[in-house]
Every structure is written in C-alpha cells, then in structure tokens.
Nucleic acid binder design. Structure first.
Lengths: 221, 221
DNA sequence: TTTAGACTCCCTATTTATAGGGAGGATACA
DNA sequence: TGTATCCTCCCTATAAATAGGGAGTCTAAA
C-alpha cells in the first residue's frame, strides 16, 4: 500500500490527553494517519472547512458544539464523512440517533485501544463497526441500517428543543427551582412550569432528575 | 540512568482506551515504565497487594471503587505511594480533598498528553505537580501543602455516605420517586425521605437534581 | 457496658413539581 | 390570509419533595 493511500483521520474529543493517546496508539498503524484533531465541535467544523479526512473519530460530549450537532451540520451540508462515534455512554438511544445522523461506527471509550484502528479501517471501507456491548442493542432495536442513514425525523435531539426550553433545561440542571428560574429569566413561574412540562414530554423523562441527566449526557451545560 | 531505575507506573482509569493511550504516550519516555493498569479501584487495591509501583496515575471517577476510596485505603494501610490524580473535573474542592488524602499531583484530562510524563517524574521525586487551571485554586485556598497530607476529617466524599444512602442516591438518579424507591428497597417512603434529607445535607446540594449531578460526577451509577 | 453509627419509621408543615387544560400575542411562512 | 411555531401566562388539582423535629432497634467498637 502506498503512503498516499493512508486513511486520513481526524480526532475530536474535549480531552486532549485522550487525543494524544489515540494518536500514539494509531502511530503503530501503517495504514492510518492522523491528519487533524479538535477539542470541540466548532473546531471540527472549522477544520473540515479547509481540510479533508477519510474518517472522523468523534466524541459526543464536547463543549461549545457537541458531536450530535457536528453530525447534523455535515448532514445539512450533504457532506459524506465516515464517522466513528467515541462515547462514554453505550446508550441505546444515542446509538440509534447517531446512526440516523450518518455515523458509521460506535466505539465505547471503555473498550481497548486497539479496537479504534479496527473501527477506523472498517468505516473507511464503508462498513459499519460497533464495539462490544452495543452490537446486540442495535440489531434488536433497528430494522435496517444503511436505509436509515438518510432519515432524520422523529427522535429527540438537543436541537428539537426551542431556545427557551434549552435555557430552562440548563437552569434546572443548576439545581434551580421554577421560581428562581422565572426570576432569572424575567418570566413568571407559570411559564417556567410550562417549559418543564414540555421538556418532560419531549425528552421522555419522568422528572427534573431525568432532565438533568439528559443535559449531562448531551453536554448542554 | 540504568534500566533498573525506571519509574514504575500503575495506571487506573475505567476507560481502557485512555489507559492504552497513556501507555503509548509513555512508551516514548525512557525513564518511565508502565508496570500495571486497572479499570476500577478494586483492581488497583488487588494489584498493589502483590505488586509495587513508584507512581500511581489514578482516575477519580471509576466504578466499583473510586479513586477517593483507593486513596483512603492506602492511607489506612499507611502505604506511601506517589499519586497523580487524573480527572475530568478541575473542581477546587476535589483537589483539596485528594491532597488531604495523600495525592501528590493533579492532572486534568483535558491537558496535553506530554504533561503526564512531567507529572509522573515530578511526583516520583517527592515533588507535587498541578496541571494548569488548578494551580491557582490550590494556592489560594490551601495554606500549607505537605502539612495537610495526613489530616482527613471534614470534606464530603462518596465514602462518607452509608451503604443505604448510596443505594438511595443511585435510585434517585434513576428518576425514581421516594415511593418507588421505598417499594424497591422494601422500606417505607418516610425512610427514603430521611435518606433524601441526609443526602441533601451531606452533599450540600439544593435538591434531587443536585443529588443526581453529584452521582454523575462521581460515577456512582 | 456505654457509646456511636446505621437503619428504620413517624409527625407536622410548607414548598415544588407534575398533570391537564386553555389562551393571547408575535413572527414567519406558504 | 390562513397556518404553524414559539413565547408567554393563567386555572385547577394532585403528587412529590423539602424542612425540622423525634425516636426505636441493632451492631460493632471502645
């Protein structure tokens, strides 16, 4: 294999130390070359404005702009990039969501470092890759695979929340009561309660704790 | 420097991929040798039962037994091990706590991989090391340094919670109400409420959301 | 044996959160 | 000009959480 045919990889994770680690691991791989890395979603988009890569290793939980948003942007742009999602959470729902958003692989951070090379090679060839622990969930809850790559209705994402809902969600996660939130946003407690209701409904959780957990997992704090 | 004088390092983090990464990074360091690694606190203690290392790189957030617990155990055993804490959170409180528990360095995961070698070398010589972002907080909120290494009163850790409190905390984080928790644990709702109160008090948070956030940050789910 | 901690349950009372509904004003879009 | 979405606020009512107190049992340690 020629040097020019190396798989060009971009790594995105808010933990620089993890990026460095992955690069070090991938250094042992002849066919793989890390051509870029970013610590948040905004930087990923900026990078891809001017550069190209064959595979994007993408963390879901990142500040400024998270992995979900990055995928959505790429989808809007009609950009076809092979993506391996790197996540601490093997949340079934998350897996389904990112697959719908065009991701091709899913790698739990707790799996061994060697798997990342496998994952990259797989998706670079158009295959899909799922680390142990997520595989069974996928196939049991998803009928087709390639087929759903384009669709993007239903499913609840951060972006399905309105600005105000998102704002209230954050404040709820900061342990604030409806009264306190109302004061801070200069709206009535009733209005805050309305947002609480719509959040509970949209995110399909049972109570404020569920809302906070959603916020944490999706790094919208 | 002779090979026998290499700094022996044990790495503990629940993300195997991060361990592999650190090992790869440290491979470039002549003076450092990774002699062991663990994915939870229990395994760390088990390993140190039969082995020795000069430096322990320790993640705070680990399942089964967290980093705090590991430090406490070592302190109880009177075992003097140089510890570099690896954490996603540069929480000032956390820094102070782990210093009291005998840690010698504090490395935020978001800092560059190269710093980990610096940190290891520093603490192996008895020095302390703090990655950028935590330094100022330390010195502004802590008078002495070496002096406080032995003390261990006050401060709230997971371990200051009783088994039952911890159990209830988990269930609260799973979006369960007091009634539901009572049913699951076969105790009355009143009892669950008692635990709620003591949790709110011990962890110094305002409501159930605060409890859940604490649980997330300390990975006790 | 005293003491302390952990676990259990109860009381009263207030504050918050959840559930379901309606509704007006603004804006943007077809 | 409808239509839709968002933001705002209200009503009623129940469920749940928070706050502060007391108190009994059991076990393990001093």
């Amino acid at each position: 294999m020629k040097v020019e045919n190396k798989i060009r990889v971009h790594i995105a994770d808010d933990h620089q130390i993890l990026i460095d680690g992955i690069i070090a691991v991938l250094n042992n791989e002849e066919e793989i070359e890390v051509v870029g890395h970013s610590v948040n979603g905004k930087l990923v988009l900026d990078w891809f404005e001017k550069n190209e890569a064959d595979v994007l290793v993408l963390d879901i939980n990142m500040p400024v702009l998270d992995g979900i948003e990055v995928l959505k942007k790429f989808q809007e742009q009609g950009r076809e990039i092979n993506v391996v999602i790197l996540s601490s959470y093997d949340d079934v729902k998350l897996v389904k969501e990112v697959l719908k958003l065009g991701a091709n692989g899913f790698l739990a951070k707790k799996c061994a470092g060697e798997h990342i090379a496998e994952a990259i090679k797989s998706v670079s060839q158009g295959d899909q890759y799922f680390s142990k622990g997520v595989q069974k969930d996928i196939f049991s809850s998803l009928s087709g695979r390639k087929e759903v790559k384009k669709s993007n209705q239903d499913g609840v994402f951060i972006s399905s929340l309105t600005d105000r809902e998102l704002e209230v969600l954050k404040l709820i996660s900061y342990e604030m009561s409806s009264r306190e939130i109302g004061e801070k946003l200069h709206i009535s407690t009733s209005t805050v309660d309305t947002y609480r209701k719509s959040l509970l409904s949209k995110l399909n959780v049972k109570n404020a704790v569920g809302l906070a957990m959603y916020a944490v997992r999706n790094n919208i704090l």
